Amino acid sequence: MATPETDAIIPFEVLYHTERSWLHTWLRRSLGCSQQAADLAQDTFVRLLVRNQPISAQAPRALLARIARGLVVDHWRRDALQRAYLQALAQLPETSYPSPEVRHEALQCLERIAQLLDGLKPAVREAFLLYQLAGLSHGQIAAQLGVSSRTIERHVASALMHCYRVCFE
């Protein structure tokens, strides 16, 4: 049976003013940077506001932490992608460096691809990347990964369907 406590709703403004400092501190411990923590705390509240759903008074910190944890993972993924991209650029002669606009666009594309592939199981993701990026056939991938060609066909099809669903949801 629901009780008044479990049915209680917190107004967004009240939650923001009462939990902003706690969330910032929690994020600062995870990130080690007060500015990044402030940015992600703000992004957490924006996500909560945009979802436009009532906020239960039962466990507001758990909700904030769940949203913030996802943003931290996204932040680390973007940071790792950026480092890898910059390392790859460092291998090029300076005259071949793309413009800042092209670098920015490339990083955005890499981030979107990483988001698309994020929901895939590791074996499915690996098969898909070998098929799409390395241009290997199903048979070649199967031999490399030690599974049947039919398994690779299913992995690639599954990855394509996943990407399609993510793009068109």
Rank of each mutant, 00 (worst) to 15 (best):
A157K: 15
L110W: 03
Q36E: 00
Q58R: 08
E105K: 08
I10W: 11
A62Q: 10
A38H: 03
V72A: 07
A80S: 02
A65I: 12
I9Q: 13
R47Y: 06
D39P: 01
A8Q: 08
E19R: 15
S21L: 12
A88R: 15
A68M: 06
G135P: 13
R77E: 05
T18M: 01
I67G: 05
V147N: 02
H75C: 01
A37I: 06
E126M: 06
T6Q: 04
I10A: 02
E153G: 09
H138P: 02
V102I: 06
L160D: 01
V46Q: 12
L136H: 09
A57E: 07
A159H: 11
T95C: 02
C109K: 15
T6F: 08
Q82T: 09
R165P: 03
E5R: 11
T3E: 14
R165E: 00
G139S: 14
P93K: 15
R28E: 09
I113M: 04
E13A: 10
E105Y: 09
A159C: 09
R51T: 04
S148H: 05
F168S: 08
I10L: 14
R78F: 04
C109W: 08
C33I: 09
A88L: 12
L40H: 03
V14R: 11
H75I: 01
P11M: 14
A65F: 04
A134N: 14
A59Y: 09
L129G: 11
D118L: 07
W26F: 14
L71F: 00
R112H: 02
V156F: 13
A90G: 03
R20L: 14
H155V: 03
L136S: 06
A65W: 02
A90T: 03
A90W: 08
